[in-house]
Each structure stands twice: as structure tokens, then as C-alpha cells.
Simulated scan of single mutants.
Amino acid sequence: MPQLDTSTWFITILSMFLTLFILLQTKISSFNYYLTPSTKLIASQKSHNPWELKWTKIYLPLSLPLH
């Protein structure tokens, strides 16, 4: 059974990391970042729901008086 030749592994792994680093750098450098984000002024609109006009009390079963 022949021996596994591992003499080229170092240069293969090193070139793989170098290639990945270069690809990542080119991807990141081509990305356009916004310098100052613009703020939008949104007028708050209050929604009128029918249940907001009434006062209701919710009775929990544990808050009922004991008889």
C-alpha cells in the first residue's frame, strides 16, 4: 500500500486561504456603503379603534372574590 504524499498540502491550504482572502476583500471593497443615512419625517397618525373609546375591565379568574 503506497504512502500518502502530504508534501503539497501546505502550499495547497495556504493558496486556498490566500484566494479566499482576496475574494472576500474584493467583495467587501465593491460594496457601496451609505455615508449619511437620511431620516424620514413621518407624521404619526393615531388610529381610531372602537375599543379605545370604551373603558373595560378584564376580570381574571384568580382576581375574583372568594365566596
Score class of each variant (00 low, 15 high):
Met1Arg: 15
Met1Pro: 05
Met1Trp: 12
Pro2Gln: 09
Pro2Met: 08
Leu4Glu: 09
Leu4Trp: 10
Leu4Asn: 11
Asp5Asn: 12
Asp5Cys: 05
Ser7Tyr: 08
Thr8Gln: 14
Thr12Pro: 01
Thr12Asp: 05
Ile13Lys: 08
Ser15Glu: 05
Met16Cys: 11
Phe17Tyr: 15
Phe17Lys: 08
Phe21Lys: 02
Ile22Ser: 03
Ile22Phe: 05
Ile22Ala: 01
Ile22Thr: 04
Leu23Gln: 03
Leu23Arg: 11
Leu23His: 10
Leu23Ser: 02
Leu24Trp: 02
Leu24Thr: 01
Leu24Ala: 01
Gln25Ala: 06
Gln25Phe: 09
Thr26His: 05
Thr26Ser: 06
Lys27Ser: 07
Lys27Trp: 02
Lys27Phe: 03
Ile28Tyr: 01
Ile28His: 00
Ile28Ala: 00
Ser29Pro: 00
Ser29Leu: 03
Phe31Cys: 04
Asn32Lys: 07
Tyr33Ile: 01
Tyr34Gly: 04
Thr36Trp: 09
Thr36Glu: 15
Pro37Asn: 02
Lys40Thr: 07
Leu41Cys: 14
Ile42His: 12
Ala43Asn: 14
Ser44Pro: 04
Ser44Val: 10
Gln45Asn: 14
Gln45Gly: 12
Lys46Leu: 11
Ser47Pro: 07
Ser47Glu: 13
His48Lys: 15
Asn49Phe: 07
Pro50Gln: 13
Trp51Gln: 13
Glu52Thr: 11
Glu52Pro: 04
Leu53Arg: 12
Leu53His: 15
Lys54Arg: 15
Lys57Thr: 00
Ile58Leu: 06
Ile58Thr: 01
Leu60Ser: 04
Leu60Asn: 03
Leu62Trp: 10
Leu62Asn: 14
Leu64Phe: 13
Pro65Ile: 04
Leu66Thr: 08
His67Glu: 08
His67Cys: 11
